[in-house]
Design a binder for these strands. Structure first.
Lengths: 226, 226
DNA sequence: TTTCAAAGTTAAAAAGTGTTAAACCAGGTT
DNA sequence: AACCTGGTTTAACACTTTTTAACTTTGAAA
């Protein structure tokens, strides 16, 4: 679950955004001013910050600077009331990843959040290994192939995407909603059922090697153990 | 310093983009409509144009045509609204280098600008740079030819355009709609089927080299793996 | 133990793709 | 004008991938 810190002093806008993003399957903590925002940031692990620029007690830029001390990598997106040149520049100096002027559409906000997260994820995984050894089975996620004792099996894109996710988290739990959002785009009932179908398919592929197993963690997700 | 002409009638978005790009070390002139945009273009030397399609007085496509008269080489990137009638997209015939659909993230815009500039710079340095080595097959996208073990095959222009797009994105996914908009002008059912026909043709051409493969990424697009 | 949500499995429906051939269309030629 | 010609699109049919549906089994909580 992607965890977002949202700081916004306007209670209406704040909870509106919080609810919207929660509906989109993000975990969102809302802070009503800069000081509370910093407290929350230090107490929790976040993946993303959305900071209002004009807030009582501590403005968004000061907060961003302090956040950057602890975490120089975390994406920060600023919200500001009107387009002010000085503000924008100041924001980018602190290392803003993006910037939105009120009023804005929530849809647009979502687009930008996703774009930034996509880039960050790519950077994390870079350099990206696309071959995995699963016991005596070799998985090439780029070519979508499995090789076992010389014979080659072709996987479909979705099979490959899902298996890759398990390989990247070998022996570690992969939450259902994370996999769904990453591969299917969102966590819905039907996508979840679709994913179950793919789990069955992957289990068949991995059957040749008995010490390879996709375990279900009831209510949480799955893990591939080797 | 790279000099960009930006035409955008929405003052908020316009100055936001201007400031963002200035923060990224570009020189940016902003014009509020198509006529002013043309005036500025004729009075200054630009390296890049970002044109909103829907503008008062003169739309982005008309402006692009006039810009092309003076400078057939300059990169043009269009900003389009989401709900555009299909035939308007035909405007890509004026030779857009890229397009972005609103809403978009500024970060993504920057990535695309850089990608185009990089390609343009490469072309300037090396006018023969539209040659690609695909294993032991040599592809000349300018002459529309493939050379394999001495024998030469001529490609049609569409075959060449599509193969070039794959070569520019070797081992990376190329989305269907991106290819369609870029090469066919718009993403419609019949163009998509036409594209499939071309995929088949390209696969035949690349058959002589077994480690060259156009893979389908179901529902997304294709990638050429080498 | 009963109960119900979550997960496993299989099959059918729907969506997307591969391929071939015929139709169409624009250009140059007779 | 009618006729070629080569490129491109449309049509048709086969096939693959993904999703939806229906039914079964499992697991955790009341």
């Amino acid at each position: 679950m992607i965890k977002i810190l949202l700081t916004e002093d306007d209670p209406n806008l704040g909870s509106l955004l919080q609810e919207y993003l929660q509906a989109k399957e993000f975990e969102v903590d809302l802070a009503r001013d800069g000081n509370l925002g910093l407290d929350m940031f230090l107490e929790n692990e976040y993946d993303f910050c959305i900071l209002d620029v004009m807030m009582p007690k501590k403005d968004g830029f000061s907060l961003a600077k302090e956040i950057r001390i602890k975490n120089p990598e975390i994406p920060i997106l600023f919200l500001t009331a009107k387009s002010m040149p000085e503000d924008t520049l100041k924001g980018f100096e602190v290392g803003a990843d993006d910037y939105m002027t009120k009023p804005f559409s929530m849809e647009e906000l979502l687009v930008r959040i996703k774009a930034i997260l996509k880039r960050v994820k790519k950077e994390e995984k870079n350099p990206e290994a696309d071959q995995f050894a699963l016991g005596n089975i070799l998985f090439d996620s780029h070519k979508h192939t499995l090789t076992h004792e010389g014979n080659l099996t072709k996987l479909t894109s979705k099979e490959s995407d899902l298996l890759k996710l398990f390989c990247q988290n070998l022996n570690k739990p992969v939450s259902r909603s994370y996999a769904l959002k990453l591969i299917w785009g969102d966590d819905s009932y039907f996508n979840a059922r679709s994913m179950d179908v793919y789990i069955t398919k992957l289990r068949k592929y991995l059957k040749p090697n008995p010490d390879l197993q996709i375990m279900n963690l009831h209510g949480e997700g799955f893990k591939l153990v080797c």
